[in-house]
Design a protein around this nucleic acid. Structure first.
Lengths: 203, 203
DNA sequence: GTCTATAGGCAGATAGAC
DNA sequence: GTCTATCTGCCTATAGAC
């Protein structure tokens, strides 16, 4: 009694989030229901409401966890990629992995449905993109300073171009079920940012 | 009696399409209902079913008309823009006009909801993107031949980059309600395609 | 072409037993 | 924590009168 968890069973809550996350990434927030999650998890709809009072709460939790997980992935790229070009490639690879599972980026999907989302979810979606912009801006400016990247204007603008291009490339590649189409688009985009002289160094 | 229209009243059908189109572009295909359209048009839901038997039929008609209208807009750009750079700018401006009305591209929105769409709508969505790719490819290859555009690889790949980047930039700019953000992204994208020397004088 | 009325189903959510 | 049962509301769609 002295020591106890302050929340509901993390195992079940996490499993709910896993299922709901995939459903949103495939079908959208307006394209899945509590019944879908309940059926897949093998519990009742009412039990879901115990863990997440309403769909809006579930949605907030989804974005929050997704953003945290993405931050970890970015830290991992920082830790393993040697220079800015490699970090950009690692960033694009995060998107490719999502597309390979026939999913859309969670927040890209929610951006499409933005006008139908409750306010807390809206704010959380924007925070995700803000986080991505900030990380990319840092990589881009560092790369330019190091002389391995080339682009005009502020890094923030090119960061936004990269995010938008990757989200849009995912959006369109998914109907065609064509990962190669996505990869070719990415190569074309990032190829224009890498200084030719430095390109050989990347291997 | 000898002469009569072969279809339902085009006026009402067109008005239904106008309202439904905007609703889909703002809220998504899974985010609006017959009741929304009926209320806005001031008729009953049952009357809608007279013009469009089911939601799927309405959806097909929406994409079909949107694709036709877009083709006309592309022809207009061809007719008014003097060279490839101007045509690319005109193309991007079509997207900006949509974003200004706080809407997403109809087919960009439907691409997000792709997995929930009936098969005929899926095919129509892809045809829209195919049309865009074809037009852009022509503009790009012509511009490269004329020495006013520069890009590596096949025109088709850069065409896909442009479509994806514009769709993605719209997708993300809309939550922020920031047209300038979109425009800056577009400038950054297209700026990399225009040959510096050729921008001022040709040959 | 448009209406009212309604069918039949699924949505998100709650009450209360266990 | 999970259940069954149920509520209320909205959804797409249809029947039949006008």
């Amino acid at each position: 009694m002295a020591v106890r968890v302050s929340q509901s069973d993390p195992g079940t809550a996490a499993r709910i989030l896993d299922i709901a996350e995939r459903l949103v990434q495939v079908r959208g927030f307006n394209g899945f229901s509590y019944a879908d999650v309940a059926a897949e998890l093998g519990i009742s709809k009412a039990a879901l409401h115990y863990h997440f009072a309403g769909k809006a709460d579930l949605g907030e939790a989804l974005i929050s966890r997704y953003t945290s997980n993405f931050a970890e992935a970015l830290a991992s790229v920082d830790a393993t990629a040697a220079d800015a070009p490699a970090r950009l490639a690692g960033y694009a690879d995060l998107y490719l992995q999502v597309l390979r599972n026939e999913k859309m980026c969670l927040c890209g999907m929610l951006a499409a449905e933005y006008q139908t989302l409750p306010q807390p979810m809206r704010e959380a979606v924007m925070r995700f993109f803000d986080q991505n912009e900030g990380w990319l801006e840092g990589v881009l400016e560092q790369g330019r300073t190091d002389g391995v990247l080339q682009f005009a204007g502020p890094g923030r603008t090119t960061a936004r171009l990269i995010i938008g291009s990757l989200e849009g490339a995912m959006l369109i590649a998914r109907p065609y079920g064509d990962d190669a189409r996505f990869q070719a688009t990415v190569d074309s985009l990032l190829g224009g940012l890498i200084r030719p002289a430095a390109a050989a160094t990347v291997a």
